[in-house]
Design a protein around this nucleic acid. Structure first.
Lengths: 244, 244
DNA sequence: ATATTTAATTGACATTTATCAATAAATATT
DNA sequence: AATATTTATTGATAAATGTCAATTAAATAT
């Protein structure tokens, strides 16, 4: 965690609602915090610090005690399951304006994976104890968090099915489509990720990923240069994804 | 669903608390319902029906609308992700006395997998609308459900890692240990599951599963006959599981 | 009891995927 | 700019896994 700097301190002033990652505008994708009263919001924000991370830095480390949740204000992060033998699996890419629930675990538990910065990141940490206190008082907030938890669960399920039931081409297609449609939302898109990371998202070695990518290129489905991928025939990629 | 019979109707009488699957004793493993007041409990139980299923019957079907949760009173069920191409993956075995949250999805959604009876099953269905109403009123209940959801999420994560990061022997070892320690809690144990189902739990074909089982037998790690498995050297199986 | 179906097992083989090694390209460092 | 270091790519090969077909055993129906 060396290198992380405290960028700004967010106090109890009403203004901060618009500036920090708790505002609708920022962590708004989950619109969870919109259900809190101003008082509740301030309670949660009290002592909150916004932290800056540089690419590659670890934000949360697997197996450390879970005392805070993280809320990404801007930047891109990866959620990695670290294997004792070094086989990493990237479970998810986190975008700006999203709250990350530490893998479904809310209270008094250990983190089940590592979160690391891909780009420059501003994020803040939410004390789980404070969150817990609010949950007991505000059931609408609790329900919303439950829904969010369920959404994450279903995404994980989808990942599980994709990775276990498909051969490599299907998994590579899934990764390429996921990056285009869910993360970068552009075509062509620049990926900040290394080929190793793309392979870790697809559950294979980097060599296999590269070979698969090359086949797609040769078949005219995509065009890729070093850090750019353009999807030329999305429908065919979707077919490949479906057929496994 | 033909063949399912209504075994008994659980009314509003106080006695039913001890007999139906909502009581601490029955769905007690999640102790979730213990947080409801008697009135709330009755509200949830109103019109509840206890249904009997026979082995092989479908209890919940993937892609159908999610209107009820199911609570298994006794018996064994499997949670299956059905793939369009027929590659099924068994995500979980559900034991007696457990509540099943339909894969993390609580409200107005479709079921993301099928639940089918392995043995004879008594279970009851809980109206999600009623559940939702209670959640808004009883935040302790909501939090408990959130915790339950998180537990399920972490189990799914563990399954995901096991299936994607391990070779066949590690996956087979996981399945055998899971059945012994989490499901049947006996050694040797009788498994009601077919070899195809064991393979579906391990993410491989039945032929591969059988071959792997045979290797374990030849190495003296297990002893198995048609419907029985005895784990002889659990520590070595654990090693195999760890090493992938 | 016999016939019929279903599940389990085995073997041969093809396909998929990983591993290892070598090289090339890009990036960082001096 | 030159060197070192990391990342990307390619090829050859081995290992892992799936597929298909045949056989046996068991379960169920007749």
């Amino acid at each position: 965690m060396s290198g992380a700097q405290i960028a700004s301190l967010c106090g109890n002033c009403p203004e901060c609602k618009h500036d920090c990652c708790f505002s609708d505008r920022n962590c708004g994708s989950s619109h969870i915090f919109g259900l809190l009263t101003p008082d509740e919001l301030h309670e949660l924000m009290d002592n909150k610090r916004q932290i800056h991370f540089r690419p590659g830095e670890t934000i949360l480390k697997q197996n450390t005690p879970l005392t805070h949740l993280v809320c990404i204000k801007n930047g891109l992060a990866k959620v990695v399951s670290e294997d004792p033998r070094g086989k990493n699996l990237i479970l998810q890419i986190i975008k700006s304006n999203s709250i990350f629930m530490a893998g479904g675990s809310i209270m008094d538990d250990f983190r089940h994976f590592t979160v690391a910065a891909i780009t420059e990141i501003d994020c803040c940490f939410i004390d789980t104890n404070k969150l817990y206190t609010l949950l007991t008082r505000n059931s609408a907030f609790a329900i919303e968090l439950l829904k969010h938890s369920n959404e994450q669960h279903l995404k994980m399920l989808s990942t599980l099915i994709n990775l276990t039931n498909k051969y490599m081409p299907g998994r590579v297609a899934d990764t390429l489509l996921y990056l285009k449609n869910n993360i970068f939302e552009a075509n062509p898109y620049n990926f900040v990720l290394s080929k190793q990371e793309l392979a870790d998202m697809s559950g294979m070695t980097k060599e296999s990923f590269i070979r698969s990518l090359k086949e797609f290129e040769d078949s005219g489905l995509i065009h890729h240069s070093r850090n750019t991928i353009e999807i030329l025939k999305e429908n065919e990629l979707i077919e490949i994804s479906k057929n496994g």
